[in-house]
Design a protein around this nucleic acid. Structure first.
Lengths: 342, 342
DNA sequence: CTGTTAGCGCCTTCAC
DNA sequence: GTGAAGGCGCTAACAG
């Protein structure tokens, strides 16, 4: 079987019909009679014809492929984003070319050159932490193809960004605790030179304010949110007066705090209610009752891919930014099941 | 700037050198003098030339792209495998086209057709759990391109498989416990209709045998390894006599058992030493001292990509299977750090 | 070393 | 509706 090596010319010869008609039929053009179309399609499957997309791409200058630049594929958040991208792209008949920048600008530059060379129809990118200038995106953009930023927004030309509203998520998390009756809520915050963590702290403060609770500096514990620091923050919490709620912007710290609390007879959530930001599936295993902020990773992937493909079709970017909302998830531990499959 | 739209003909005209020479120079052919090569390269960068890989691909019938079929990208194990593939491919100048089968045969079939159409130079595949026949791989193979199976081995034509030696890993895990001085070792096993879990149980038995310990059925607890079952297995363990070690083929079950033990005053690892199979990063958070079997996911990706690219170059498959070895990781809790970055 | 020539497989005007 | 002809951009014989 010459599968894969059959061309439209083979079909053309076998049927005595010109190759241009075969091409039209294969593309389901309305300018071919149903009869010949049927004949051609039949012959094509008979011969095991597979369109050579390379040739088609060259001719049409389209690849039906989108490029995805991701800092690190194995980070849970990003692998979920990619899953969303892949699903959406797949449904629309697009291929996905995935590249990891590993947070390196140099790699990102090379990747953009590759993506341009490969003439991918559009690019979804989460810029590396090293990236401050966008020179390397220019050639691709100038070529006329759209770029959409996801998770890490950028104002570059008229490109669309899609990100998560951290302020709002934190606000809701804190509000949730307040509505549960908490009056003295501690905040486990991250490094304040990172915008993300700033926003999360702001959301915490805003919620307190809305409900007439006073923000007190000693209740705001800033750290790098490691496991160790989670424990030491838990210790501090026990020294503070009447703490009945904690909003942690990171699960890891929340987890070790929970473990410390449990070891010291503090009941969760009866004595202290906790809300954590869900970065990975860890929290649910440790404390199924833990309320978390689930980031819309998969949804972000879907949305980003949809936007990009839209721009590819319409050949223009809106420049508008899209902001997604995180969900507050109150888990029902009786229903919760862990996926044990390997 | 017409970046991306400059062709070798533009360079050719600007310099009065034939386009074929330009092509040769750009490909660093030794058959072009250094002088002209330099001239051409200079002009190329001046004009912002970017090779049109589509045209090149069509001409050479090579795409420098490998296809990766993966059941689900967001599963920790697979995302690490992909990271390994990506790294190796990237270094060798290959692109990676990633497709998820989502454990569906139908999707897998479509994917293989797409990969053939796209003329990817080779395919790395972990077949879906629905896949029992391999008809859909035939056209691609017949076209002359190599397929390498990873993680889920297959005997299909002369294709290479690369997988993990579960028997050996389990043997080592159990042996580790024995060498620590454990005499009564319980096994938390998975469903015995799955080969993987069979092999893990066999490894456990073989290690006991080697060291003259008797295998006793009540010490072999088989379940689906959910969190709940981990707890109930822990209960059973406490009813058994003198248990001083547990080999769990899954972290999740081990974790909930550990939590149960801790809540009941059993010290880990002093009273009961535990070894778990590391499916995800959960275990390290909960019990940093937990010894685990780390599956060589990243390494598997690297190896698989290397093998495939080798076969692409040499245009033939060895048909040999490659078996990787898992590592026994004894963690030093004092050194262990959690990645807290979001 | 460099130029000539001829496609890779497909799509798309332009005629008829 | 269908056929004829040309070319997307690059590369690879074959000459010289």
């Amino acid at each position: 079987m010459n599968s894969g090596k059959v061309t439209i010319h083979d079909i053309s010869k076998a049927l005595g019909i010109d190759s241009s008609t075969v091409s039209r039929a294969l593309n389901d053009s309305p300018r071919v009679s149903k009869k010949t179309k049927a004949k051609i399609l039949a012959k094509a499957t008979e011969l095991g014809y597979q369109r050579n997309i390379l040739a088609s791409n060259l001719r049409t200058n389209k690849t039906n492929t989108i490029g995805v630049v991701v800092p690190r594929i194995s980070r849970n958040f990003f692998s979920n984003v990619i899953a969303g991208i892949e699903e959406t792209a797949y449904e629309a008949g697009y291929n996905v070319l995935i590249c990891q920048s590993l947070e390196s600008l140099e790699r990102e530059q090379k990747i953009m050159a590759t993506l341009l060379s490969n003439r991918v129809d559009g690019v979804l990118i989460s810029i590396s932490m090293q990236t401050t200038s966008f020179e390397h995106l220019k050639p691709y953009k100038d070529y006329g193809s759209p770029i959409v930023f996801y998770d890490r927004p950028c104002s570059f030309e008229d490109c669309t960004s899609i990100s998560i509203n951290d302020f709002e998520a934190s606000f809701k998390a804190t509000e949730h605790l307040i509505l549960q009756g908490c009056k003295n809520i501690v905040h486990f915050g991250g490094p304040q030179d990172i915008e993300l963590y700033q926003n999360r702290k702001k959301g915490y403060k805003a919620a307190l304010e809305k409900y007439g609770l006073k923000y007190e500096a000693p209740f705001c514990l800033i750290s790098k949110l490691t496991e160790k620091e989670g424990t030491s923050m838990a210790k501090k919490v026990l020294k503070l007066k009447d703490v009945d709620g904690i909003f942690s912007v990171n699960d890891t710290a929340a987890i070790s705090a929970i473990q410390y609390f449990k070891a010291h007879g503090v009941r969760i959530p009866e004595d202290i209610a906790i809300v954590g930001f869900n970065n990975d599936p860890i929290s649910a295993v440790i404390e199924p009752s833990l309320t978390t902020i689930d980031q819309p990773d998969f949804e972000m992937g879907k949305k980003a891919a949809t936007l990009l493909m839209h721009q590819i079709k319409n050949k223009k970017s809106t420049g508008k930014s899209v902001v997604l909302t995180s969900k507050l998830v109150v888990r029902d531990s009786s229903k919760y099941k862990i996926n044990t499959e390997v």
